[in-house]
Write a protein that binds this DNA or RNA. Structure first.
Lengths: 159, 159
DNA sequence: CTTGACCTTAGATTCAACTCCAAGGTTATA
DNA sequence: TATAACCTTGGAGTTGAATCTAAGGTCAAG
């Protein structure tokens, strides 16, 4: 039996977080002391571990609620239901990753085109790319008038 | 010279969004009509294109503010400043992608271990993985008592 | 019997980037 | 002149997951 602070410390969460989980129905302490303190049982702790593990895997609290309601009533659910939750999440995640990879490619292309040196940004190819209408990125080699030996290592035949 | 609705339609944004950009200083219309309507110039439109392009690349509005303030005063900034903004973003993005890939791997492992069939979830390996303390995931082949021919295609020698 | 660490509650705030609303003013067209 | 389509403002709501605040109750030690 743990009080909120003990449970919080044991699992490295804030007491606020546990109260939040209580309020939102994810984890209600199985009893209260006479004075109203939350008292968490070992089962409650187990449930918290479930929540934290699911969170670490990338589930939202809403997903976790769903998984917990299945968990509490396993025999009335099928594997297909559980796998469905996971697979939807997986598809979301793949879409998100694809999007971020697209951003990354764009940024990488911008970064590569810029010398990154102490030259004035007047001809900075990053700014020019953001100003222009085209998606082509011009390298700075042509616009900066100085010895390019230090700054061109990143910018080779792009665009 | 465009009124807010025209500019919005031309660039496929909502008028609300343009008012939001105005309020937050990203894009203030260069003039107002006698009756107070926002009037956007061609320069304003160019600035909007800059914003939208930067957004599409994955910059936050905060990042974009910073880029715009450099853009407006290019000669007092160096390429290094601009590239710095991009490279910080790139590093953030890489960290985010790595995190999501980690989530994805975890979810994929869970998904692969579950038959996804109409069997009761009582021995669902996904739920068991979330309940257990170990990170090992047991495949359902051993726990479901039925012809496994349809459901084991995803679960081979995992864990 | 007081100090300090703990606990309670309801409700406000945070972040991003909008999005929506109400109440009212303007402008173009029939 | 009436109607519809536009515009204005300030302010509230959205999502997710907390985090913080204020005002107060409880408990163990000295």
């Amino acid at each position: 039996m743990y009080r909120i602070g003990e449970l919080a410390q044991r699992y490295q969460v804030k007491t606020d977080t546990l109260r939040f989980y209580d309020k939102h129905g994810l984890l209600k302490p199985s009893s209260r002391s006479e004075s109203g303190y939350r008292i968490y049982s070992e089962d409650d702790a187990q449930r918290l571990r479930f929540i934290l593990r699911a969170k670490a895997i990338g589930f939202s609290l809403t997903d976790i609620s769903e998984l917990l309601s299945i968990e509490l009533d396993k025999s009335n659910w099928a594997c297909a239901d559980v796998k469905g939750v996971v697979d939807i999440k997986l598809a979301d995640l793949e879409a998100k990753i694809a999007e971020l990879n697209y951003f990354k490619t764009s940024l990488q292309r911008l970064s590569d085109a810029c010398c990154g040196g102490p030259e004035s940004a007047e001809h900075c190819s990053i700014l020019e790319a953001l100003e222009s209408n085209s998606s082509a990125i011009k390298c700075e080699n042509q616009t900066h008038r100085h010895d390019p030996s230090h700054y061109t290592k990143n910018c080779q035949s792009k665009g």
